[in-house]
Design a protein around this nucleic acid. Structure first.
Lengths: 161, 161
DNA sequence: CGGTGACTGTTACCGTAACGGACAATATCG
DNA sequence: CGATATTGTCCGTTACGGTAACAGTCACCG
């Protein structure tokens, strides 16, 4: 029963998300903040709505995320040059210094997760996971859940013994 | 960036948990209820504390879970023969009729998740996932999170583009 | 046998977070 | 210019996890 891909993926996924959040915590950001920063690093100046669409979240959630990041001095809300309703979001220099550290943490975590696998197994696992994600309709960069990633281990059981 | 096992596992895990909850919803139970029922099917008569320990959740959460299941007529709280403080938890006949249907839903979901893989790939994937779960310290039947499994897709982004 | 501590199940309380509706400001279209 | 949609924000409600506290009971120990 604990040998279902079903259960294993869900269990592992949550465990990994938790562990990653814990590793990222010392930097003062959560996984969703990290994802947003990485996305911004790939293209700044978009509106909050555009960012929300790209990450598959609601505008209101983006407000909160940006509030957090702005308070930590990691992003700036400037006036949008073409639409005075919208904000244009930009990374700050502080964020540009923080991002490499966060990426290194992600690398370390990846290494820890895959510690039991050799190189070829890792490649194959990722390929298989991508195929599953593709066939089940997961968007490449969109991650459901992980609200603010401050969940502590607690309830739930998707497969008893 | 969307090619990290890190991110893929977390994304897939959450997506799968959500989909499974949706599939189970018509039966009126959530994944954690299902896990508890399956566990009870493997051995009844235990105390709530024993069940909570086995599933890795807090007593208080078990109270709520059993309240739900008892209200739906799926479990019974009887007096514990050896400890008058404790309750002995038993499945009802209704639960015994419901369980096969729930298991079939789980099987269908498993099939859907693994649709893109052939038989040997499925076996190997499960073996690899079990190795990872083992090396990262996941208990066999314990699933963190999935509180009441009523989360709807919302925030979070663990890897932008 | 009495007393003390520990345990079980439950409830009450609190802080947090998600969800929905409503709102001002602005853009777009007729 | 007027009507409608969009952007970002705020507020109120609801749900949930976590802690503390409680009554009832057990286990130990003198």
């Amino acid at each position: 029963m604990a040998a279902r891909a079903n259960f294993l993926l869900s269990q592992l996924g949550f465990h990994i998300a938790q562990a990653f959040a814990a590793r990222l915590a010392p930097l003062g950001i959560a996984p969703n903040h990290f994802g947003l920063l990485v996305h911004l690093d790939g293209g700044e100046g978009g509106s909050q709505q555009q960012l929300a669409d790209a990450l598959g979240i609601h505008r209101k959630v983006m407000v909160g995320l940006l509030d957090d990041l702005e308070q930590r001095g990691l992003v700036q809300r400037r006036r949008h040059p073409a639409d005075r309703r919208a904000h244009a979001i930009y990374l700050t220099d502080v964020a540009r210094q923080l991002l490499p550290r966060a990426r290194r943490i992600a690398d370390q975590h990846e290494e820890e997760v895959l510690a039991a696998l050799d190189a070829s197994e890792r490649v194959e696992l990722i390929a298989v996971l991508q195929r599953i994600a593709d066939s089940t309709g997961n968007s490449p960069g969109v991650h459901p859940g992980l609200g603010s990633a401050s969940r502590s281990g607690n309830a739930g059981a998707s497969a008893g013994e």
